[in-house]
Amino acid sequence: MTAAAKLLDDPANAVTDALRGLAAVHPELSVDLEHHVVARGDERRPGKVGLVSGGGSGHEPLHAGFVGLGMLDAAACGAVFTSPVPDQVLAATRAASSGAGVVHVVKNYTGDVLNFQMAAELADDEGIEVETVLVDDDVAVTDSLYTAGRRGTGGTLFVEKVLGAAAEKGLPLAEVAALGRDVVSRSRSFGVALSPCTTPGSDQPGFDLPPGEMELGIGIHGEPGRRRVPVPATGVAREVARTSVAAIDEDLPLAHQDLLLLVNGMGGTPLLELQVLAADVVDELSARGARVARALVGNHVTSLEMAGAMVSVCTTTPELLELWDAPVRTPALRWGA
């Protein structure tokens, strides 16, 4: 078999070449091609808490696309679906540090957790204080091949946006980290796959999903979910909305809650379909007594070209909404700035 056709020059250099492209069209960013680290290119503000995240590539725009005013100060980009190594995370931490400490936003995958922990210890040796916020928002499964406990998925976007605004306001390190843990406790996600994805250079998909079936509770690397079911002949979006919201509501009761909502494409789902799903999700939430205060629809936390979607919610407060609404200017998310 031959490798799947992709818009690449050399599959082995996919991450480096993608970062070259990011640098070419976003000169406001500082892109370190040696360490695969993307950082803000503006002058660091003394006394501002730094915000760093990262993970395997293939989930774009997460995380590099969220570097900029009001979100991340730096992101470490691992190989496709592979955690960045400690030296990469340390380089990102140095790039984000301005003397007030750095918060690491870490998705709960074993490699990410271990490598960010090692990087935090190395940063501490250099006099950079690090706090870690672990994101584990996925309600689909408790343990998987990649994790101990819940996976970190779409809720990561809520954490990065809110903490980015808090750091811009000048909150101290301990408060920014505590706020991040609060946002994690309020966030839940559930994903569905309609097709698998194929990593660069591979001649076959990363997992098997026969035509006419969908995986409920999929992870962002194609990890198995709760179960595999036939795709309905009609009403697919309604069924995905019903299943996703029910799973979230079972874990975090949504009645009388004001919500941030993310209807997230997994990389291969057209916006037209995501908007159909969004309407059905809002209907499901309303039927359960919840109100959508703010919403995003689009491809934000992806899995290469996987077809499918993830529904993420975060229960909110006026204070959190103020931080959500605060100006943000990144390649992938911008408003008010």
Rank of each mutant, 00 (worst) to 15 (best):
E273Q: 11
V184I: 02
W324M: 05
C77N: 12
V282H: 06
A79V: 05
L145K: 14
L7F: 10
R20W: 09
G206Y: 03
D258Q: 13
K107P: 03
G99N: 04
Q117A: 15
A279N: 14
P61K: 01
P211R: 09
L8N: 00
G101V: 08
R94N: 05
G55Y: 02
V282D: 12
V276L: 12
V102C: 14
G336Y: 08
V301P: 05
D283C: 10
A120P: 10
I248G: 03
A92M: 00
N13S: 14
L33S: 13
T156N: 11
L260P: 00
L321P: 03
W335T: 13
I128E: 00
V263A: 06
G70Y: 12
K48R: 15
V141A: 14
P331Y: 07
G127L: 09
G267C: 01
A39R: 06
K6W: 03
F158N: 11
P232D: 09
V328E: 06
G99M: 07
A326H: 07
H256R: 15
S53W: 03
N264E: 03
G152R: 03
C314S: 14
V183M: 02
S189Q: 06
E43N: 10
E284C: 15
S83A: 15
F81Y: 07
P253M: 07
T234Y: 06
A91V: 14
L22K: 01
R94V: 12
G206K: 04
D249C: 05
D136C: 13
V313M: 02
S98T: 06
V106Q: 06
V292F: 10
F207W: 09
E131S: 10
L260K: 01
V135Q: 01
L19R: 06
H104T: 06
G289R: 08
D9M: 09
G56P: 00
G65T: 06
S185H: 01
V89P: 02
G55A: 02
S144Q: 01
L62E: 08
G212L: 04
G267W: 00
L8F: 06
F158I: 05
G152Q: 04
A167C: 15
T82N: 04
E60V: 04
A12T: 13
M306S: 05
V192A: 06
V133P: 08
D17N: 13
L72Q: 09
E131P: 07
R150Y: 12
